[in-house]
Design a protein around this nucleic acid. Structure first.
Lengths: 250, 250
DNA sequence: TGTAAATCAATCAAAAATAATCAATTTCAA
DNA sequence: TTGAAATTGATTATTTTTGATTGATTTACA
């Protein structure tokens, strides 16, 4: 039994049952558990399945954390640090993109009194900036109630109509080697759309997300110009990013 | 049973029942309470659920409910009457426009459980329908913080991309002779845009607005097909509208 | 308000799963 | 056939997950 055949059987089993265990597959395919594990790891890297402890799941069934205001309690000190740094980079008169990341959301409180224009797909951001000096432009399209944000094709097209000085974006994972990754394709699409229309792209990214790879890899590191992170970030890791031409602030 | 699978079951249970207890989940998933507690803590950190003593709850809206309080109090009984009538006109599977009028806003509570698609430029409407059966499409463009709605050129263009079965709109004034009028040009523009893309146009309009003329006259009576108003409306006035080919409900 | 019961966090220990390393086997091309 | 590369399996160390215990905290009820 070779890899392509095993792969076929594994994929079929996962699709059928939603989730499987390593033991189960080893029994079914009549091979060792370690081989199954290797197969699963390879397939998970390709995004074909979602790897769990002891087995694998159908990708669609895995529930990813939503990015949202509720999360603000987690790592909040670090996030505030990041946002203060980011806010210093924003000058009056500028047009900026803000996406629906939880770190990006916290940026709101630091820019309330700036005379800028914010283009965003995040409903919490809009709400937070409604009564402020900031002019808000809301991205139109389908509302994802889970994420309390606007996503999808129409939303991406809307973004493409604008041109901004800076984009402040969040990601779920970033690595020097593989670049940016996210937990969902729709979020990745919005990130790409905003990054493509901004002169300078800032990634707001607490140190726990550095050197982590998530479900979809969607862009190389070269998409961004600046990473803003917290003091807990590993200096060696930061140096790696710098060597690849990214400015790192912390 | 591994974490991702438990996570799925927990989330599903919480969504279904609104709240669950640790014991209940431990029994359901056949695992220890401490494991459930750990799961809940992790999920709460991700913002997927709201942790309570002894269990968990469905995560509520993190957006502070955008207030319409000042306006909604006025004529509320009459407005509810209008909205009940209007809601009866909406069938599952339909696509409808809703604008940012205060009467239109009250329509939300009557359509929460309908399987429809709502296209709106009103932030309170979005907020109200976020956690409902309704699919929401938000109009993109400049946010008018005073009206808590999206207006302007880009917004009108966004609307032009869609085609709906029905539009439910508010106006500031209506008269048999002069047609529809509004207090601002931007609101008038949105009304026109939505009306132009809907097969049937409903005007939700309490009786105090009948035969009133406001700042801008922006459309003839023929723009609309139906007026929904309250029982306090003058029968003679209603007859006038009917004679001009408008269906009047009250 | 005070007391009892329930729930929780923290710590530790056990079990399961995994990663890492190395050896054996197979495959493939020359 | 031979030798290098790829694949597979076995072993061991590490990590992750789970459950039990204890003391602290919160809630419910009188």
């Amino acid at each position: 039994m070779n890899f392509p055949n095993r792969k076929r059987i594994i994929l079929q089993t996962v699709e059928e049952k939603g989730s499987v265990e390593v033991k189960e597959l080893a029994e079914l395919i009549q091979t060792s558990e370690i081989t199954i594990r290797r197969d699963l790891t390879a397939m998970a890297a390709d995004g074909l399945i979602y790897r769990t402890h002891g087995g694998a799941m159908k990708v669609g069934l895995a529930i990813n954390p939503i990015q949202f205001a509720n999360k603000t309690a987690v790592n909040s000190d670090n996030k505030d640090h990041i946002c203060r740094l980011a806010a210093q980079e924003i000058n009056d008169g500028e047009i900026i993109f803000m996406d629906c990341g939880s770190t990006v959301f916290r940026l709101c409180q630091f820019i309330r009194n700036k005379r800028i224009q914010v283009i965003t797909n995040s409903l919490p951001v809009v709400n937070e900036l409604l009564e402020s000096e900031v002019t808000i432009n809301l991205v139109g399209g389908e509302v994802d109630s889970r994420r309390q944000a606007v996503h999808g094709l129409i939303a991406n097209e809307h973004v493409a109509r604008y041109r901004a000085h800076k984009a402040f974006l969040g990601v779920d994972g970033i690595s020097a080697q593989h670049g940016l990754s996210a937990n969902s394709e729709t979020e990745a699409g919005m990130t790409l759309a905003m990054a493509g229309q901004a002169a300078e792209v800032y990634l707001l990214c607490d140190s726990t997300k550095l050197e982590k790879d998530k479900y979809v890899h969607f862009a190389p590191l070269s998409l961004i110009q600046v990473i803003v992170t917290d003091p807990a970030a590993n200096p060696d890791v930061m140096e790696q990013y710098r060597q690849r031409g990214v400015r790192v602030m912390n």
